Amino acid sequence: MFIRIVKMSFEADKVEAFLQNFEEVKQHIRNYPGNRFLELYRDKANPTVFFTYSYWENENDLENYRNSELFKEVWSFTKKLFRDKPEAWSVDRLVTLD
Rank of each mutant, 00 (worst) to 15 (best):
S54P: 00
N35M: 15
I29H: 09
F82P: 03
N67M: 05
E63G: 13
D61W: 02
E87D: 09
F22D: 02
L38Q: 02
E16H: 10
S54W: 04
I3V: 14
D92M: 08
R30S: 08
N35G: 12
R42M: 11
F37M: 10
R36K: 13
E23Y: 10
T96A: 08
F71A: 09
F37D: 03
Y55Q: 02
N31G: 14
R30Q: 08
F77R: 06
E11L: 13
K7V: 00
K14A: 15
E59V: 07
F51H: 12
Y65P: 00
K85A: 07
L70K: 01
G34D: 04
K7D: 01
T96L: 06
N21A: 11
T78G: 04
K14M: 14
E69L: 03
Y53L: 08
K72S: 14
S9G: 07
D43G: 02
Q27F: 10
K14Q: 14
Y55G: 00
V49P: 00
K80A: 15
P33S: 12
Y55I: 01
L70Q: 01
P47Y: 09
A88E: 08
T96M: 04
T52K: 03
H28F: 11
V6H: 04
N35D: 06
N64I: 11
V74P: 00
L81A: 05
E39F: 06
T48Y: 13
V15H: 11
L19H: 06
F37Q: 09
E23G: 13
F50P: 00
L19C: 04
V91G: 03
N35T: 12
F2I: 07
D13Q: 05
Y41T: 07
M1S: 14
Y65T: 02
K72Y: 10
M8H: 09
T78W: 14
M8V: 09
R30W: 07
R36V: 05
Y55T: 01
L38E: 01
